[in-house]
Amino acid sequence: MRRARCAALAIGGSAGSLPVIRGLIAALPCEMSLAVVVCMHTSAHVIDDLCAVLGDTATVSVVEAIDGAAVEPGRVYIAPGGYHLLVERKARFALCAGQRINHVRPAIDVLFETMAEAYRGRLAGILLSGRNHDGAIGLTRIRALGGHVRVQDPETAEAPEMPRAALALAAPDGQNSPDELQKFVRALAWIGPISDA
């Protein structure tokens, strides 16, 4: 029996998450059937630099998520600063310039919730280091709709508040170190045959 693979991976991070995200993206194979969408708390106008920093150790292409563009497998998309990033049911990006949520824009909760509803059980979510509680509700939503969620072990996080808030709200499928998370995303992106073990 073969079960459906994950079609997409959502990653959220804030303070202290940049090196971890860089490692996760570097761990991805150059060919994969997975679309990866990253929401970091950043200010506006740094998006080009951010894509460059995250892309220079990667074999996959790392690009800005553009309003109206299709979410395509094999690429890593980064949320631009100053807007919330959403994914529509038909797997297209949409931006929203509305109020900050959890004091931030882009908010991880917005991306996670809309991706959870678009991909349902075919989504994995990872929440990383950060200093507030953004992402906890979104991660819960991913799990409630049948997706798979991982949280960075707070012990390994430069800012443990965000992973802790998520752990307090939802029981994840795993609580991992950055090294373990790299193994996880490699397995997730693996395009060879899958066994049912």
Partner: peptide, 18 residues
């Protein structure tokens, strides 16, 4: 290494979403 398998649950939430 095995490919990752998503869980199959979430049924009640899914019909609520639909």
């Amino acid at each position: 290494m095995n490919g990752f398998q998503p869980r199959g649950d979430g049924g009640g939430e899914l019909s609520a979403l639909d």
